[in-house]
């Protein structure tokens, strides 16, 4: 009895998941976008300055401006699907929308999705309180301390890798506490539950500006720079190419540099080939 129930429901679960992964037949999403006259973009606008909402609830930021410029070049409108991040990757794999912006590029992920050419480079930094045990952002100086990160993000993965290196050298690893939002990592720092926060530098700078009531300070950068790019379902190589072409045109016209200055305060040179780490 139990056996049969088990088989039935595993079958149902597998079937349902299989249904969800079955990407719609052969046609590239680019053709659908042209026919529909709009590109459907899934976005979790909780990541300023990359993407956030203004007081009226409109999606704004560096990536939305880039997307709207690229869409204008393609002659289509942008339709946002605003949703929490944990729904975005399943939806992208299931082909429920055309693209999503602001994904850190990693080799493991590149096996599952395609990336258009990078739109930004993320540099991580270490945030502390002004009176702190943290001497510098060098990983050796963080050994044995507690750091808050956003769970499931690239900074968390980077710190895990750095921890492996620390342990290989016989040092104590950094104890990592993973939270959901940047706001919570900063609350943990303010409560002295952790000694530092590790996240994207521009996000931390934004936090320092917005939380003037807390004695926050940057200890410095950590790790190398990581490309950030738009993600597209692997079934749509034509769409990926069209988005990359659109971005290249914005680079050539100087529009991308202009937006970088507007949102980050500096410009970055970004690679167009071989940007997926090995």
């Amino acid at each position: 009895m139990l056996n049969r129930r088990f088989m039935l429901s595993s079958l149902a679960a597998v079937l349902a998941a299989g249904l969800a992964t079955a990407t719609p037949a052969a046609a590239d999403a680019l053709d659908d976008i042209k026919a529909r006259g709009s590109i459907i973009v899934a976005i979790d606008p909780t990541f300023p300055p990359f993407e956030f909402t203004d007081a009226a609830g409109k999606v704004v930021g560096y990536d939305p401006e880039l997307i709207e410029a690229v869409a204008a070049g393609m002659g289509v409108k942008v339709e946002y699907k605003v949703m929490a991040f944990s729904g975005i990757i399943p939806g992208l794999i299931a082909g429920a929308f055309d693209m999503t912006p602001t994904l850190n590029v990693t080799a493991e992920r590149a096996a599952k999705i395609d990336y258009a050419i990078p739109t930004a480079a993320s540099v991580n930094a270490v945030l502390t309180l002004k009176e702190t045990a943290v001497k510098s952002s060098a990983i050796e100086d963080l050994a044995g301390l507690k750091c808050a990160v956003k769970a499931t993000t690239q900074p968390e993965q980077m710190m895990t890798t750095l921890n492996d290196e620390l342990e290989a050298k016989g040092a104590k690893p950094v104890e990592l506490l993973g939270f959901e939002t940047i706001e919570q990592t900063i609350a943990a720092l303010a409560d002295k539950r952790v000694d530092c926060v590790v996240d994207d530098k521009s996000v931390l700078v934004e936090a320092i500006n917005k939380r003037a009531d807390l004695p926050l300070a940057l200890a410095g950068e950590i790790g190398g720079s990581q490309p950030i790019a738009w993600g597209v379902n692997k079934a749509n190589p034509k769409l990926t190419a069209a988005l990359s072409d659109g971005l290249k045109a914005l680079k050539a016209s100087g529009k991308m540099a202009e937006l970088q200055t507007k949102y980050f305060g500096y410009t970055t040179d970004l690679p167009e080939t071989d940007f997926v780490p090995k």
């Binding site: 909780t46 956030f52 909402t53 706001e183 934004e206 917005k210 939380r211």
Partner: peptide
């Protein structure tokens, strides 16, 4: 959450 992440509060 959308408002929080904009206002950091």
């Amino acid at each position: 959450v959308l408002i929080q992440s904009r206002a950091f509060s």
